[in-house]
Design a protein around this nucleic acid. Structure first.
Lengths: 269, 269
DNA sequence: CGCACTTTTGAACAGAATCAAGTTTTGTGG
DNA sequence: CCACAAAACTTGATTCTGTTCAAAAGTGCG
């Protein structure tokens, strides 16, 4: 790797060396001497699903030790950061889930997105001083904290090895994801919103090695509603309707998907 | 300026030297020798409203010459880039306006945002290979093209002077702006959407030195509708209603705002 | 066990979409 | 430069989706 690559797709970013387990242990071995963590990421159970880790090549992985200072545990309902908090770190979810939201004038809240293991939180405050949104754990959640000071040092030290590029990639993905959410919200059809929401969740669980057809929602109906621009009652009603039609089974927070194709049909129109 | 600052608000980013005209000419004089443009930005009429320029300190301003390779003219309806185009540059609008949108399955389009002079387009593709959206000029528009290759070189050469920081700042602002748009779309009230839209436009014109109470819309009603999640007819109806109530006067694309407070009242609820 | 919160369900209402013309504007070619 | 066609905008009537209001049932936790 020669120079910072501003423009590169994820395929080419995944060097073979990153996928080679021996390369990883080599890099972690060389990381000795960094105070906070001697074996960066190597002990992390969520390593393979971590967006940051997946983007790293062996070269820059070596530097991760300087950045990943600590792991943080959150219980259900605890905040990772709040609106107007000073931005201090990026956070990668190791296990559990979180919602990012902000408070509207009326006191109600707008859920921007839900995040799962491997997802990165806090990008929206990387370039500005304060967080403009709040992040709250929806269940027992552990996150990997990457302090901005450490990130800054790492970026300067190894600016040639493309750390910035990883950040740009994360930013772009976040922007695109936001655009898709806009599309989702603007769809007039409530059935389509719910169908798309379920399909997206299903895909995300599958990507993380869990069942695509049986999973637990970590968010309340009202949070789903806030995210999709629907009233709680509508969310509830449509979930019930989908169940009555045999597409899914919902019991409290547990969801089973029986007819993925039918869901996709609802999503399509 | 010592090191890359990942976290800094816009106030501190605006060094006094940036605001000092003599410092600007000094830096542009030093830029001699760069092939493409001997006086970077100094001849640009939109310099003061350019988000990129405003973020630059005198130090990094000197490097702009290497990056700003050319100015590009677009006529009404011309594309700056399209979905799935290879990402090649960032674009700063010098004059005119543009919409960023993407096409939905049904063939309809989702307008992500409108952009005015000084705004930066193309960030969503900086970290990935392809544009996920299209950008189209809504009128005669001139843009400043910053090729990614040049940007890349500049970032490597002067990584210590904070160019990356400017990009992060732009990214964060873009993300936050997207979140606000989500809020706008989720508001159920069509009147509020239009009122907020008008107030935002008014503010943007004012920021750029134009009248806040009399301006021309560069977008069609249908584009406003697509952006706000409303049918064309609803946009038209509400504009008419606002006019009947004496809040505004709309004639084709020309808008006059008579009662800003009343608009704000509609926006609030 | 009781209280608070979440979820479900029902009924009525309201807001915005849709459908359907009609009007105005814009653009194009003769 | 005018005539004609296409696009953009407006206006009205109707329909319908999803909200709101209301209340009950289920769940969880101290």
């Amino acid at each position: 790797m020669t120079a910072s690559r501003l423009n590169m797709n994820s395929e080419s970013a995944r060097d073979d060396t990153t996928r080679d387990p021996s390369a990883i242990s080599r890099s972690t071995a060389e990381a000795e001497g960094f105070p906070n963590l001697t074996k960066p990421c190597s002990g992390c159970l969520s390593r393979e699903r971590c967006r940051v880790f997946r983007l790293m090549t062996a070269d820059s992985c070596r530097q991760a030790a300087a950045m990943v200072s600590r792991s943080q545990q959150l219980t259900h309902g605890e905040h990772l950061f709040r609106e107007n908090d000073r931005a201090e770190a990026l956070y990668v979810i190791k296990s559990g889930s979180a919602k990012v939201y902000f408070t509207l004038e009326g006191g109600s809240e707008q859920v921007v997105a839900f995040y799962m293991p491997g997802d990165v939180l806090g990008l929206d405050a990387l370039g500005v001083e304060l967080h403009s949104s709040s992040a709250l754990a929806l269940e027992s959640t552990s996150v990997c904290v990457i302090p901005l000071t450490g990130l800054q040092e790492a970026c300067v030290k190894i600016s040639a090895s493309g750390w910035h590029h990883y950040l740009y990639q994360m930013f772009s993905r976040e922007l695109i994801s936001g655009h898709r959410t806009m599309e989702l919200i603007t769809r007039k059809d409530a059935e389509a919103k719910i169908a798309i929401f379920l399909i997206k969740l299903s895909r995300q669980f599958k990507e993380r090695g869990y069942s695509a057809s049986s999973f637990n929602l970590s968010m309340k109906r009202s949070e789903i509603g806030s995210h999709l621009g629907l009233a709680v009652e509508t969310v509830s009603r449509i979930l019930t309707r989908f169940q009555e039609d045999g597409l899914i089974r919902v019991e409290r927070r547990h969801v089973q998907i029986f007819d993925h194709n039918a869901l996709q049909a609802w999503a399509g129109d």
